[in-house]
């Protein structure tokens, strides 16, 4: 056995011509395919960002394809729990309590009676995908806070999802921005269940994980409490382009 090993080692070290045995075995196509794939993959990583943008534009007219292949653009469905209870607009309720003057429960009709705000804004996910020019409508959070009255010692707003797990928080200053919505409509229709309906949060200037889906409760608190992904390493102040080590264009 030993001499064979030695010959093999010698053959590998020498850069001489192809031996008879190797010629009989054929050319190393497998290795070339693997190396070719690695080259293509590296090129794909290098140009992928601009290529993906072009793919999104090219497939945009196909519309619904993004619902089948996320890489073809559009929203991607994320939930951290197994299944989420479905609420119709009629059954849905949201409590607003904590450090407020008048705690109360809201239904869809209550929200509809408040001043309505519409925004045309991009949705940017921290994982990289972005959906341009989404039409959002609902009640601006400052308008809702005015109805319940914020107590002087309140410093932050905490949101809970009726999925039972997900939570998010904003500072009171952030929550008083006009581009933070309790969204009841999206793209001209109701917010569907898969998009976090019937009512979700939309925090325009921040990454998507701040825009909590399936909104079930709002609580005014004395300090910011980390949300679901923030306890798993994401930034609490999730400004698009200025957090999480990313440099996306602001939304």
């Amino acid at each position: 056995m030993a001499p064979r090993v030695v010959t093999k080692l010698w053959r590998r070290c020498s850069n001489g011509g192809v031996s008879e045995e190797e010629r009989a075995e054929g050319s190393p196509v497998g290795r070339r395919i693997v190396l070719g794939m690695l080259g293509l993959g590296a090129a794909g990583v290098a140009v992928g960002a601009s290529l993906q943008e072009r793919v999104n534009h090219a497939l945009a007219p196909v519309g619904q394809l993004g619902n089948v292949l996320p890489a073809a653009g559009g929203f991607r469905y994320y939930t951290v729990t197994g299944s989420v209870k479905h609420y119709s607009g009629a059954d849905w309720r949201m409590t607003v309590d904590g450090l407020v003057d008048k705690p109360r429960t809201f239904g869809m009709a209550d929200l509809a009676r408040l001043p309505q705000t519409a925004l045309d804004k991009d949705f940017q996910c921290v994982t990289g995908w972005r959906v341009p020019d989404v039409r959002w409508a609902g009640v601006a959070l400052p308008d809702l806070l005015q109805v319940v009255g914020v107590a002087p010692q309140a410093k932050a707003v905490r949101f809970t999802s009726f999925d039972g797990v997900y939570t998010e928080s904003l500072t009171l200053d952030q929550a008083r921005r006009r581009d933070v919505l309790v969204a009841t409509r999206m793209e001209g229709g109701p917010v569907t269940h898969d998009h976090g309906g019937p009512v979700r949060l939309y925090v325009a200037p921040m990454y998507g994980y701040k825009s909590l889906k399936w909104l079930g409760g709002i609580e005014l608190t004395d300090r910011v409490r980390s949300g679901y992904w923030e306890r798993r390493g994401y930034d609490v102040d999730a400004w698009v382009g200025r957090s999480n080590g990313r440099d996306d264009a602001p939304t």
Binding site: G44, G48, A49, Q52, T127, R246
Partner: peptide, 14 residues
């Protein structure tokens, strides 16, 4: 950097 992450996502996805 972002463009590398997006590029890696692109390759990983397709």
């Amino acid at each position: 950097a972002d463009r590398w992450r997006t590029g890696a996502t692109f390759v990983h996805d397709w």
